[in-house]
């Protein structure tokens, strides 16, 4: 059997997720034993429409990108969204709750009209996808897990429980017990609570679990002294798109 052909694309995002693929180092060589990378603008000159698996980073933030995504969908039998921007809308969707006229003027002044933009959205809001690897950036082990499981013909284990599960297993001191607040209780696990492990808090980059207990969590945040506006901002950092759905 010939190796599946992989193409990697990016839309609005920081390309940190593609960097994680490069950062696989020796594991990337291992992966190249199973797949053939045929398009990867960030790392290679060649490009083609003949591929089986498309890996897409970044959000769709303007109408013109929808056509490109649809073309990718036509070429690929498997589309994997990587990173928060592609999987859940990500930090780009912070602007979804701002007044477009204001934020365009804020950045571009009187030239604002030149720029086409609409609400930042995940890839799945434009085309159907087979898998999403959330995270800002993606967890390299989880990315490998997803690729391996797809090659083995199974669906990946992307957890549907909150970060707290991993945080407790990692024996972290809860952010709330340190005078911080955190959106871990509603955020999808799978990153091994990496930010809390480094002494900070969960910012929500992996998006909401299915059916999150948002109201109960908001009460917790308010009980820890947050104003309603601060609660909303905590939720909007990464949940801007999901929260609207």
């Amino acid at each position: 059997m010939s190796k599946p052909r992989v193409a990697i694309f990016d839309f609005a995002g920081c390309e940190g997720d593609e960097l994680q693929i490069v950062n696989l180092e020796e594991s990337l060589l291992g992966l190249l034993g199973h797949v053939e990378v045929v398009t990867f603008r960030e790392a290679m000159k060649e490009r083609t429409d003949d591929y089986d698996i498309a890996i897409v980073e970044g959000s769709c933030t303007r109408p013109e990108d929808e056509e490109k995504l649809k073309h990718i969908r036509e070429c690929a039998s498997i589309v994997i969204a990587i990173g928060s921007c592609a999987a859940i809308g990500g930090i780009n969707s912070l602007k979804n709750h701002l007044d477009p006229a204001w934020y365009r003027a804020e950045v571009y002044g009187d030239k604002a009209d030149w720029f086409d933009t609409y609400k930042a959205r995940p890839i799945s809001a434009v085309i159907p996808i087979e898998a999403a690897v959330p995270g800002c950036p993606i967890d390299r082990d989880e990315f490998l897990h997803v690729v391996k499981t797809l090659l083995l013909g199974r669906t990946p284990d992307i957890p549907n429980y909150p970060i707290c599960v991993e945080c407790k297993k990692n024996e972290n001191v809860c952010a709330f017990d340190r005078g911080e607040v955190c959106v871990g209780p509603v955020t999808r696990a799978g990153c091994n609570s990496c930010c809390v492990n480094e002494g900070t808090k969960c910012w929500g980059c992996r998006g909401l679990i299915d059916d999150p207990e948002k109201n109960a969590h908001m009460e917790v945040l308010e009980a820890h002294g947050l104003t309603p506006d601060e609660v909303i901002k905590n939720f909007q950092t990464y949940f801007g798109w999901e929260g609207d759905q």
Binding site: P162, C164, V165, K168, C174, E213, A216, E219
Partner: peptide
């Protein structure tokens, strides 16, 4: 249980 976050913390620790 109304305010349960279903986070599993209670059983994990």
């Amino acid at each position: 249980s109304e305010k349960c976050l279903k986070c599993g913390s209670c059983v994990l620790v």
